[in-house]
């Protein structure tokens, strides 16, 4: 249990719960907000436990939610999660090639996180941008009609953004 919570303190988690409203129907938005606030795009067991306590839920029910919905992770991910759509329209638009571009550019495989904890590559189901496939989704942003140049540029932009923040 020593590995946890460098990212979020209990007060922060409780504050999020309070802001969103400590009722059961707010569980998803609470967990999504915690995940975002973590900076590592995940929900640690301890944070989930505090949520469970505040909402009066067994931890096993919170865990069910965390493992059911695709947007959650219980393991730390990169600061930016690059989600490449591999549903049919993007598949037809050659998303496989885009996967190759990203894996080459970042030097990691799908599902992995870069050593600097900046990027995680993963697949996603359709994000509703089929007219500009193949697409990658990063946070709230969707980038379409991807080419090798665009991919390199996107990664560059996020790298620079991150270094500015630091």
């Amino acid at each position: 249990m020593k590995d946890f919570m460098n990212e979020l303190r209990k007060e922060q988690v409780l504050k999020i719960i309070k802001e969103k409203g400590a009722t059961k129907e707010n569980l998803l938005t609470i967990l999504l907000t915690i995940q975002e606030a973590s900076g590592r795009n995940y929900v640690h067991r301890e944070w989930a436990k505090w949520v469970a306590e505040e909402l009066g839920l067994p931890l096993s029910k919170v865990y069910d939610v965390l493992t059911f919905y695709a947007m959650f992770s219980t393991k730390p991910r990169g600061k930016y999660v690059l989600e490449i759509c591999h549903s049919a329209p993007c598949h037809v638009a050659k998303s496989a090639a885009v996967v190759q571009m990203f894996t080459e550019e970042l030097g990691i495989k799908m599902g992995e996180t870069t050593a600097d904890n900046l990027f995680t590559l993963q697949y996603t189901s359709c994000v509703g941008a089929c007219d500009i496939g193949p697409v990658v989704k990063i946070g709230e942003k969707v980038y379409g009609n991807l080419t090798r140049d665009k991919v390199a540029q996107i990664i560059q932009t996020y790298r620079e953004g991150a270094s500015c923040l630091n």
Binding site: P58, S60, K61, Y63, D64, T67, F68
Partner: peptide, 9 residues
């Protein structure tokens, strides 16, 4: 008791 539950999909 809530010890075990469904999980994943």
């Amino acid at each position: 008791v809530g010890a075990i539950n469904t999980a994943n999909r």
